[in-house]
């Protein structure tokens, strides 16, 4: 029996403690057949990247509601690159104003899911971008 399972890290960078969304997405992705690793609160970009590498994940999903996304999301992408792990795909979610999204995309965050996004959109993003 050989098969490539998709592994996803759901991480909460920064200091905000609102993890309802992160926990929901983690559980919903599990219910869609993925292996999901959850870091818990208050993760620095450095620890998120080390975790992503050790766990050999295919995706990193960042959840943030405090407004620090412009600083913290690009930092994760940058550190992945520094560690030769730029093949790991980063996406984000949380309270993120529409107008910030183009700049985040440009800095390598592949997708931003704002509140109210149905889980099937996230799943189809993963299916489209997963390594076979």
């Amino acid at each position: 029996m050989s098969s490539k399972n998709v592994r996803i890290l759901i991480a909460k960078p920064g200091l905000d403690g609102h993890d309802r969304g992160a926990k929901y997405i983690a559980r919903a992705l599990k219910d869609n057949g993925y292996e999901v690793i959850y870091t818990g609160l208050r993760q620095t970009p450095e620890s998120i990247v080390q975790t992503a590498i050790q766990e050999d994940v295919d995706f990193v999903g960042l959840s943030l509601l405090s407004g620090a996304h412009n600083e913290l999301f690009p930092k994760v992408v940058e550190l992945l690159k520094q560690n030769q792990a730029e093949d790991i795909i980063v996406f984000g979610g949380g309270v993120i104003p529409e107008e910030d999204i183009p700049a985040l995309n440009q800095q390598g965050i592949k997708a931003i899911f704002t509140p109210g996004t149905p889980i099937k959109d996230v799943v189809s993003f993963i299916e489209k971008n997963r390594k076979t």
Partner: peptide
């Protein structure tokens, strides 16, 4: 309990 100049405060100062 972190000051604004702490590493943990990156991006969070004055936000919420």
């Amino acid at each position: 309990g972190y000051d604004s100049d702490d590493d943990h405060s990156l991006g969070e100062v004055g936000k919420v």
